[in-house]
Simulated scan of single mutants.
Amino acid sequence: MLSPHELATLLLLRDLPDPFGLDQAEVDALLEHQLVALEKLPTGQQRFHLTRDGHSVIQAITRLG
């Protein structure tokens, strides 16, 4: 089960793939649950993107609201 803070972090990462300023423990939890993944760009930089499961969680919580 995700905490409200982890859900908020998931929503933020959907729109801002750079986790700058986000709580690292929450980002780590999302990685552990495989809701986000790191993508290596051709420039050598990395960015987060939501996995299929991450998108499913967001769809489920937006339907509830």
Score class of each variant (00 low, 15 high):
residue 20 F to A: 12
residue 13 L to A: 02
residue 15 D to A: 09
residue 35 L to Q: 05
residue 45 Q to E: 12
residue 26 E to S: 10
residue 32 E to L: 14
residue 21 G to M: 05
residue 62 T to V: 14
residue 53 D to V: 05
residue 19 P to S: 04
residue 18 D to K: 02
residue 63 R to H: 12
residue 17 P to F: 03
residue 5 H to G: 10
residue 63 R to D: 13
residue 54 G to R: 01
residue 4 P to E: 08
residue 5 H to N: 10
residue 46 Q to R: 13
residue 45 Q to V: 03
residue 59 Q to W: 09
residue 45 Q to A: 10
residue 10 L to T: 05
residue 1 M to C: 08
residue 3 S to N: 06
residue 42 P to D: 02
residue 58 I to G: 03
residue 27 V to T: 07
residue 65 G to T: 14
residue 65 G to Y: 11
residue 21 G to F: 01
residue 27 V to P: 02
residue 23 D to I: 06
residue 9 T to F: 05
residue 22 L to T: 01
residue 7 L to C: 03
residue 37 A to V: 15
residue 37 A to G: 12
residue 21 G to A: 02
residue 1 M to L: 10
residue 60 A to L: 14
residue 25 A to N: 10
residue 25 A to V: 10
residue 54 G to C: 08
residue 32 E to F: 09
residue 19 P to F: 00
residue 60 A to Y: 08
residue 6 E to R: 01
residue 24 Q to F: 06
residue 17 P to I: 07
residue 45 Q to C: 02
residue 16 L to H: 11
residue 30 L to D: 01
residue 1 M to Q: 09
residue 40 K to Y: 05
residue 57 V to E: 10
residue 21 G to C: 05
residue 23 D to V: 06
residue 61 I to R: 11
residue 56 S to D: 15
residue 16 L to Q: 11
residue 25 A to R: 11
residue 64 L to F: 11
residue 3 S to V: 05
residue 2 L to W: 04
residue 33 H to N: 11
residue 29 A to R: 13
residue 64 L to D: 14
residue 3 S to M: 09
residue 14 R to V: 00
residue 52 R to Q: 14
residue 60 A to W: 04
residue 7 L to Y: 08
residue 35 L to I: 10
residue 46 Q to W: 11
residue 42 P to Q: 00
residue 31 L to I: 15
residue 45 Q to W: 04
residue 51 T to K: 07
residue 18 D to H: 09
residue 58 I to L: 15
residue 45 Q to S: 07
residue 60 A to H: 13
residue 23 D to A: 04
residue 52 R to I: 12
residue 55 H to A: 11
residue 14 R to T: 02
residue 64 L to I: 14
residue 15 D to P: 00
residue 49 H to K: 13
residue 10 L to Y: 04
residue 57 V to Q: 09
residue 35 L to Y: 02
residue 54 G to K: 01
residue 17 P to A: 03
residue 34 Q to R: 15
residue 64 L to G: 03
residue 4 P to T: 05
residue 53 D to F: 13
residue 28 D to H: 07
residue 38 L to N: 08
residue 47 R to Y: 06
residue 11 L to F: 05
residue 3 S to C: 01
residue 20 F to C: 05
residue 23 D to L: 06
residue 57 V to A: 06
residue 65 G to C: 13
residue 12 L to Y: 04
residue 35 L to F: 06
residue 38 L to C: 12
